[in-house]
Design a protein around this nucleic acid. Structure first.
Lengths: 158, 158
DNA sequence: TATTGTTATACTCTATAACTATA
DNA sequence: TATAGTTATAGAGTATAACAATA
């Protein structure tokens, strides 16, 4: 344990209004969640961003680059770099649709599909593990509230 | 509306397992929350990071630099830069405690106190506003679950 | 030996705007 | 005129490791 931020609830720091701030709580929760992600899957050299992009392409073959950016709340300029990197690494290919030659459709290559398969196993295993500190009911409720906050329709049942 | 990611729930993209991923939901929620923060307070030139650091120092005068880093889950190396910047801008001063001359205690200057006062108003106003998409009950429950996930004790009543 | 803070480096992500080619 | 993607630049934020002073 070489650096900071691994134990909270010590030294009794007064968080004041921050403890009531949704943005603050979301930020710390996200960092905690990603830390857990790396703790269990770091050896696989998976990045949360890469995983989410690849899984979204896998579920939505031919998705437009801009739609991908919008859904993941990534800037278009940044998405351009990510797509170029993934193209260079051989995970995706891009095609230009006939009806709109400005756009770019993204497809997984065989290598990309293999990568998704390799990612999905550990990813789903990590996600199916219990969120520390919460009961299963609470975890489900937390996810439901986040989806509602985000305007993601409740549809599929896990 | 010049760039991406301002309207979800269009084009019906299949999120697949991501819609069940706590880390993914937390990340998008945090981005959404910060976007709201800037939309209402951006004119004040407030940064969420700066606001949280200053408010924590205000509530905990003389807090150690490392404790600040740990509580906010910021790396010590980065906290060094932030403290230097805030010292240069005249918002904080640093003292060396007698019992441990390695450490650095952080104190707000008059200018820092004024800054906190200027921040707290809009900050609290923003936080007291309803979280879009959620009822007040749901918002309170969401915050409670996040605090439990983070191991922050339920104490003060807002 | 371990810890606090520092320095330095590199990388990721973000923000912004100007640009092209299409529509 | 507006949109999809690109390019370029600057700035946050992060990860990492090595280091000095102190414990």
């Amino acid at each position: 344990m070489s650096d900071a931020a691994l134990s909270r609830d010590k030294d009794a720091v007064d968080l004041g209004p921050l403890a009531q701030s949704l943005g603050f709580l979301l930020r710390l929760s996200q960092l905690t969640s990603f830390r857990d992600f790396f703790a269990t899957l770091g050896a696989e050299n998976i990045r949360p961003g890469e995983a989410s992009v690849l899984m979204l392409i896998a579920r939505n073959p031919g998705i437009r680059q801009g739609v991908l950016a919008r859904e993941l709340m990534i800037k278009r300029a940044h998405m351009t770099k990510m797509m170029r990197a993934m193209e260079t690494s051989g995970h995706v290919t891009r095609t230009v649709p006939k009806d709109d030659r400005r756009a770019a459709e993204i497809w997984l290559t065989d290598c990309g599909h293999a990568r998704v398969k390799a990612l999905e196993g550990p990813f789903l295993a990590h996600e199916s593990a219990a969120a520390p500190g919460l009961t299963r009911r609470e975890e489900a409720e937390l996810k439901r509230l986040l989806r509602k906050y985000l305007g993601i329709a409740e549809a599929e049942v896990s």
